[in-house]
Design a protein around this nucleic acid. Structure first.
Lengths: 197, 197, 197, 197
DNA sequence: CTCTAATCGAGACGGTACGTCGCGTCTTACG
DNA sequence: CGTAAGACGCGACGTACCGTCTCGATTAGAG
């Protein structure tokens, strides 16, 4: 979870990464991150990104096929960390959904600029998809007993509701982490885990 | 809805609707509806729409400023009806959320093609916004006592969760209306209306 | 011969040409002509041409598929006129090659800038091809008795030798038309028409 | 030809050629020769050449500054030999243009693949220039009395006409060497050497 | 036969131009 | 004389090569 995953498939040869490759990729990530905080995602052109990254235009395509792919790459790491954190609160077998929510909101709180960028400004749809995808992966490990909600739906619901709730919480700007966790718990988690009445 | 005029000239008198205008507009609506069922929204070009509508390219802009505007136009009517239906179950002062949900799912069920088109294929984001917007309007009439969830958040949550749940339900293809209503009630409505424990 | 030929195929509908089309095409032709006088052909970019023509970049491709196509379009008209002139000296059945050459050199002399542009600066290869092509067409009308040189070779030889000779003559700058005609006659025409000794 | 050194460093001592250098260079020459027989010169990329030569991309630039430079390198030797052969027929003071032509066509005939590659496929322009250049050099040795045609023009004319005629002869495929020599003599040589009538 | 420096392969990189596409505006010719 | 048809300016896209460059890994040839 902690180990940064090499984004592009490098399965066959475990060759060391050329330093230039790492540098370019990192520059592109940083550039998009920087830009998406200040502009709506779909007004950002590839050229904007490469200019901000001080990188040749074509170099973008040497690393990412698409603007969305770069965003995915950025988002996936963050989301993976986010989900990891929330999972880490569940160590002792007990399930404490409020603690998970607190961990999530707290992490988002500590990276407001980043997450504001990710959750507003047109990237939300991508993030939703990313969350669904990663949740699915994570769920394979932390297997829980079947619930009243079909898994597919649960993933989609949780991702959607969480994105919406966190976005709203960020936009308020002055709400406590605890309040955010409470809303998250109530709107996102409990509808899924609460036993049928 | 009634006031639609040629967008670029709105100082003109509120003349009665030219038959041709109605025809063009209807053709465009139908064309987009038809296309959005088979292609992701953002791969549909204005020219695709005008070709499918058998209408001149520029004619599009005489009626709608934007592809999104046409979609809004399409969606707004549907959503208004959807929300109206769910509200109508509440006439007698009592609140029966399950009945509302049943009404919603039932209506969607009767217009599967349309709603599948609206809820999948990239238009979902627009629809979400539309639902939020219209909910807000409707809420002004059917005023309810304050809940534990702030109104702004509630609208966003409901819209998001409803879109996601209905989309999932439609994609399954073989689930009963009752099952859809149950999930909708549980995931979307009850988290908002349920009193704090 | 005198009637300007519409460059792009318009066979089926004899519609009148949209004024904008004519304007754009003419602007592009003029721009390339202007540029090719001052820069080697292959350093001239499409953007250079469209900028010089005060025309959008994409507009180029709405009229010509290729830089070479535009050049052909330019050259064909000129060459057609050139060949036409030289043919016109042959009216009375007699063949006076010197008169033909005089007509050619004289015409080139009167449009030095244009022909210098066409014959030097990298366009020469295109011109050669164009001359071969048009000669072939013209030859179908003004049929002459078979010569000692196969037709295909004759066309290629005449085109090549004429281009080379005229280019050289133009580069000298101060040679009389008569001298040019003499050289043209000697190097280009007489080798082909002179009877076998 | 003998003086070939690493192009980018020519101040170094005239060390013996590293075997690897010779190998790479030869591979590049062979590759271009092979490619130019089957593709127009300007569609052949540097990468095409290096791939065909089984040589690293950058290695090309370690030996030749330009695609044209490699072609020149190839062509110059051939042309030098061609011209040399034709000169060698003139040793005894007499001038026998037909014999010269026969020598030229015969040599071309014995290296059809090579010359077809050089004279067709877009390289012809380069070859023409090369011939002019080398002719000029050779002419300094075998000095002849002034003719009716200015030297500069003569060189250009001969190069152009010879390229065209030989290309045509090669394309026919089944013409005798004698026929080729006859045409070459008539079209290329005699127009230049024939006395004014 | 070693060791050192030249040469190599691999390919990333900054550029520049390409040709395509869709947008939204504006002109035109036609009915 | 109004409307459809569509040409146009604009600008982003993704691709292709160019010529330069950085990297290790051979490998030739001098000692």
């Amino acid at each position: 979870m902690e180990t940064a995953v090499v984004p592009t498939r490098e399965d066959a040869p475990p060759r060391r990464e050329d330093a230039r490759i790492v540098r370019s990729r990192e520059a592109l990530r940083a550039a998009l991150l920087d830009l998406v905080e200040r502009h709506p995602l779909d007004t950002i052109t590839i050229r904007d990104i490469t200019d901000a990254a001080n990188v040749g235009y074509a170099t973008f395509y040497r690393h990412f096929p698409t603007k969305a792919a770069l965003l995915d790459d950025l988002a996936a790491a963050q989301i993976r960390r986010l989900i990891g954190l929330s999972m880490d609160t569940q160590q002792s077998g007990t399930i404490d959904s409020r603690a998970s929510c607190r961990a999530i909101v707290s992490y988002v709180d500590q990276h407001r600029a980043l997450w504001r960028a990710l959750l507003t400004g047109g990237a939300a749809a991508t993030i939703r998809e990313e969350i669904i995808q990663i949740s699915r992966e994570v769920a394979l490990e932390y297997r829980r007993p079947g619930s009243a909600i079909p898994d597919d739906l649960a993933f989609r619901f949780v991702a959607s509701a969480m994105v919406e709730t966190l976005a709203w919480w960020l936009e308020q700007g002055n709400l406590s982490v605890e309040r955010g966790a409470e809303l998250l718990d109530r709107l996102v988690i409990s509808p899924v885990v609460r036993p049928v009445p």
